[in-house]
Simulated scan of single mutants.
Amino acid sequence: MSANNRPPSSFAPRERTFTLPATKLTLAAQEWGVPGGSPILALHGYLDNSQTWSAFLPIFLAKNPNCHIVALDFAGHGRSQHRSAEAQYGVFEYARDVIEVVNLLGWSKFALLAHSMGGYVSFTLAAALPARITHVVSVECMHPWVVDNAGAAKNLLRALKFEDAASRRAAPRTRKTYPSLAAIAAVRAASSAAMPLSLGAAELLMERNTVADTEGVVTAVTDQRLKDPSPYIISVPLAKEAWSHITCPTLVVLATGGNLLAMWPEAGTASNGSPGLVVKELPGKHHLHLDDDVELVVDTVLQWFGEHPLLRKREMETPTPVVGYKL
């Protein structure tokens, strides 16, 4: 990450927490912009946190200041609380958490700004709650993470086998420590050839995913269970049916150097479903909104918002009926 992408001090976010009524889970967030402005909830990718927007949002707000943006740390990520031992991490659980957060904020209608896994959550919400989701902007996610029917069955069985082995494990999991934030950032930057990060970007993300003791020794605080096999990866037919209910304007920004379809080729056969879908390809890699030409990504999003305006104050105050997916 270049020095030019570091957030100006005048656009420092405010820390905020939400205690969810249903689960009593406490989620952390960073709040940007003007309360009462156009509401946008920003969602991050797998194993990241709200810092993923720390380069994008200062530029975005400098050019479009009348917004109220809350960038959430998903459960188990960043500074948010981990789920209890019997609870699962999946798209449904993340989407339910988002609904509770926006209800606590008092937002009847809102836009979603998302990266990677956050895009899966956003598309699910947009399909289920079309009267509430006004826009979806998804960076590096156009389709749900899908497999064929055989793959879905395999994931279910693999997850159960993992739980069987875990329940018989004699010793608890231990967390690896690192001598410094720079050391753990270097590991994160080198951890995925398909989703590379610069050292600067990795350090920004890991700063919020770690704690340091008095001697500077760093430990990751991300919930280790996030890496456990998931039974929730859905099949292509299910995805096509679910996402066909998206009605809001949808912008997908893809990186020319991204590798998502290479990693999950089945996603290319799953319809996004949105009749208003616009796809823009920009130079960069998976974290192009953080680690490449961030201003170009911002300008692309703002140009699209110019064609699909965000809510004005009187529109935000209009009550929204509770409607959603019809069974």
Rank of each mutant, 00 (worst) to 15 (best):
L129V: 01
T52F: 01
A185D: 06
I234W: 08
T256G: 02
V101C: 09
I233L: 12
P229I: 12
W264L: 13
D228N: 13
V278P: 00
L47P: 03
R173H: 14
H143F: 06
R169K: 14
L27H: 08
Y232D: 13
F56T: 01
V102D: 09
A262I: 00
D164E: 15
N103S: 15
Y325K: 12
M316H: 00
L310R: 06
V323H: 11
D48P: 02
T300Q: 01
C67S: 06
F123E: 06
R96L: 12
M142R: 14
T210I: 06
G36S: 00
A166N: 12
T19D: 08
T247Q: 07
L238W: 15
K326A: 09
A159F: 10
Y178V: 09
P275V: 04
C67H: 03
A28P: 01
Y325D: 13
V98Y: 04
P7F: 08
R168M: 10
A166R: 15
H44F: 05
S167H: 03
D292S: 03
I133L: 11
V278N: 07
V279D: 00
V102Q: 07
E100S: 13
Q88L: 12
L105P: 00
K240V: 13
F18P: 04
E203W: 02
L104E: 10
T174K: 14
L43K: 08
G268T: 08
L125T: 06
T222Y: 04
M206H: 09
K227G: 11
P172C: 08
P309E: 12
A159G: 09
H245D: 08
P35N: 01
Y178H: 08
L27S: 03
E207F: 08
K63M: 11
T177V: 15
L311N: 01
G324H: 12
L254F: 00
R158V: 14
Y89K: 10
L290W: 04
A262Q: 11
E295P: 00
W304Y: 15
T17W: 05
W107F: 05
E266W: 10
F11H: 15
P275I: 05
L288M: 14
T222S: 14
A201P: 04
K176I: 04
S84Y: 12
F110K: 02
A22K: 14
A242N: 05
E93D: 12
L20A: 05
T250W: 07
Y46A: 07
L288V: 00
A212D: 03
T318E: 15
F123D: 02
V278S: 13
L290G: 02
D299A: 09
W304G: 06
S191T: 09
E163I: 03
G258V: 01
H77S: 10
Q51S: 14
S84I: 09
A12C: 06
T26G: 11
A267Q: 14
N155K: 15
N155T: 06
V323D: 09
S191F: 09
P229Q: 10
P319D: 03
L205P: 03
V221C: 13
E307C: 12
R6G: 07
R175C: 01
A29D: 04
S2Y: 02
I69W: 08
E100C: 03
S10T: 15
A159R: 10
E266V: 08
P130N: 07
V298D: 06
A262K: 00
S244K: 03
K326N: 05
S116I: 01
Y94Q: 05
S80N: 05
T320G: 10
M195F: 04
R312A: 05
